[in-house]
Amino acid sequence: MKSAIKLKVNGDDHELLVSPNNTLLEVLREKLGLTGTKQGCDLGACGACTVLVDGESRLSCIMLAVDAVGKEIITIEGIEENGHLDPLQAAFVEKGGLQCGFCTPGMILTARSILNEEARPTEETIKRKMAGNLCRCTGYKKIVEAVMTANEQTGEGA
C-alpha cells in the first residue's frame, strides 16, 4: 500500500505517494528527478548515494523514504547558493578532485557534512570520515587536496 508523505528536499516541500519499501534514493531519482544522487551498489557500501539529512551525511540507498519525513534533505543539486558553487564544488573542479564524476556528488556531500561538523579537520580526519565513499578513478589524492583546499577557504571566510 502506497501512502502520501511530505518530504522537504533542497528547501522545497514535495507531496509524494510512496511505497513503504521505497528508499530515499529511489524517491529522489525516480519521483523527483534528482539524478545527481547516484546508485553505485544499493547496499550502503560505496557512498555514491550520499545526501545530507539535517546536515549530516546519510546513505540514501539504505534509508527508507518514509524515515526522511520531517527532515531537511539536501542533495548535490541543493548546495549551490545563489548560483555560486559551494566552496567544495569549486575546489573539486580546480584541484581535479574528480574524473568520471560518478562518485563526486557523494564525495562532496560527505565532505560538506564533515566541514559542517568540525572547523578545520585534519587530513587524517577527512580520510577517516570519507572512507565509506569509494572512488575507482582518482586514487583519492586529489579529492583530499580538494577538501583540504575548501577547508582552508572556509576557515578564512569564517
Partner: peptide
C-alpha cells in the same frame, strides 16, 4: 596547462547525465 575538465562543473553539480539518469 593544468586546466579543469571541461565538464567538471556539470560533474560537481550533479547535472552530468549517465545512462541510468
Amino acid at each position: 596547462r593544468r586546466l579543469p575538465m571541461h565538464d567538471a562543473a556539470a560533474k560537481v553539480k550533479g547535472s552530468a547525465q549517465f545512462t541510468a539518469d
